[in-house]
Design a protein around this nucleic acid. Structure first.
Length: 206
DNA sequence: GTACAGATTGAG
DNA sequence: TCAATCTGTACT
């Protein structure tokens, strides 16, 4: 499969979040490759998004025209295709993919993947890949944003890594997803952002 | 320097 | 339902 290139990521987070569904995350460690299919994402759209780490109240935007850049969120301002990873609740890593142009702090949180185990991969009637039932337990290892980071062995050392060039992690074209099969709903765990932003249906899954 | 909440998880 | 666990950020 072909690696996704920069152009894919340099688009609005809402578009990339939907297009990421069905794509494969490939994590290489020496000869070993761990592969997961992206099945759930969330978009964070920049300074005006109250739930974003780059959120900046309208009243302060003139004072900080570059945005609210801190040591924690500075990777969000890189050009699309970089990794923004951070720790929540003191123990869980959250894997985000930066989108858009340099200076625009948009990103997509990867909330869930499905492990792809090549040795047990089956071909469906229609020619696509399916994961055999024996692997259904594996799903429980990757059905949350913190869990999938543990599964893929991702941590702070991936902060700012570039997916278009990295030798240890990248994305590949995967299954073609029918637009009709994409579901959406409110993002998770961001009630602090107030009703208006918490209600935005910017979580996508298949 | 201190306080505090958080884009979660797993156990009970 | 709740504790675990630690960092960034906003205060004094």
């Amino acid at each position: 499969m072909k690696r996704l290139v920069r152009k894919f990521y340099v688009r609005p987070a809402l578009k990339v979040a939907k297009d990421l569904l069905g794509k494969y995350i490939v994590r290489r460690m020496g000869n070993l490759k761990i592969v997961g299919k992206i099945v759930e994402t969330e978009a964070y759209v920049g300074p005006r998004d109250r739930a974003s780490h780059a959120y900046l109240p309208a009243s302060l935007r003139k004072k900080y025209p570059q945005g609210k850049i801190t040591k924690r969120n500075e990777a969000e301002y890189l050009i699309g295709g970089h990794i923004y990873i951070y720790l929540v609740y003191g123990m869980h890593w959250q894997f985000n993919i930066v989108t858009g142009k340099r200076g625009a702090p948009e990103c997509v949180l990867i909330r869930a993947i499905e492990p792809v185990v090549f040795s047990k991969l089956k071909i469906s009637d229609k020619g696509g890949f399916i994961i055999s039932k024996k692997n259904s337990k594996l799903k429980n290892l990757t059905n949350g944003p913190g869990k999938l980071c543990r599964y893929l062995k991702l941590d702070k050392s991936f902060y700012g890594e570039y997916l278009a060039k990295s030798k240890r992690i990248w994305l590949e074209h995967g299954e073609k997803i029918n637009t009709n099969s994409i579901k959406s709903g409110p993002r998770i765990g961001i009630d602090y952002a107030g009703k208006y932003w918490a209600k935005k249906p910017w979580r996508f899954w298949i």
